[in-house]
């Protein structure tokens, strides 16, 4: 099998749009609501989840033939929790500012449904290389949705992007107001709903 056989490619590409974990499988919605009020935490969360889902996919894939099926979910959870803890410890030691900014989000990765979903659905039945690609693909798919939602929410909610003011003061002087509702979690749900609507309208097969 070549490095990028058709199947490997599919494992990597489809989750990014066609079979996106957030909009198609409706996984990881909870964190999509929590971290998307600003673009920056959304970006960092997307990257962290990508790294952890890829690593845990590889670990579980290597162990898949030895894991007793009755406690497989627990073993998956232990692997994920251990990886998340290690990543957060490393951040605290070498990138303290980032870890302060992320605070609870890093811990939240453990409960991200995408991880469990991918481990159970893919890594338990496929080799480490395919699992790595699947993990990366799903991580990117998740990150893209997060960035889209955070972009809309921060722009309309705070008039800024990545903390820099985008909407000029003269617009505010003319009577424009930031939409405070955009910063509330329900708006993230509505935006994700709109993305799903758009995606399915574009592609009726879904």
């Amino acid at each position: 099998m070549g490095l990028l056989s058709k199947k490997s490619k599919e494992a990597f590409i489809t989750p990014i749009w066609g079979n996106n974990p957030v909009t198609m499988q409706i996984l990881g919605i909870c964190s999509s609501l929590a971290v998307t009020a600003k673009l920056e935490p959304a970006l960092v969360m997307g990257i962290s989840v990508t790294i952890i889902v890829a690593l845990s996919n590889v670990v579980i894939s290597l162990l898949r033939n030895t894991i007793p099926s009755r406690i497989r979910i627990i073993v998956q959870l232990v692997v994920v929790a251990a990886l998340v803890t290690i990543v957060s410890q490393i951040l605290k030691a070498f990138a303290y500012d980032v870890s302060v900014q992320l605070s609870v989000y890093v811990g939240l990765i453990i409960t991200n449904c995408i991880l469990m979903g991918r481990l159970e659905a893919f890594a338990m039945g496929n080799g480490p290389w395919d699992s790595l690609l699947d993990g990366l693909g799903n991580g990117f798919g998740y990150a893209i949705i997060l960035v889209i939602v955070a972009f809309i929410r921060e722009l309309l909610g705070s008039g800024a992007l990545l903390g820099f003011q985008i909407i000029p003061q003269c617009v505010y002087d003319a009577g424009y107001l930031n939409c405070g509702l955009m910063l509330m979690p329900p708006m993230a749900l509505i935006i994700i709903g709109c993305i799903i609507w758009f995606q399915r309208a574009k592609n009726p097969e879904l």
């Binding site: 033939n65 030895t66 894991i67 007793p68 099926s69 009755r70 406690i71 627990i74 073993v75």
Partner: peptide, 11 residues
Amino acid sequence: TNSNVYTIIYA
């Protein structure tokens, strides 16, 4: 891999 002993030892 489904026996009780294996499961306990593995865990």
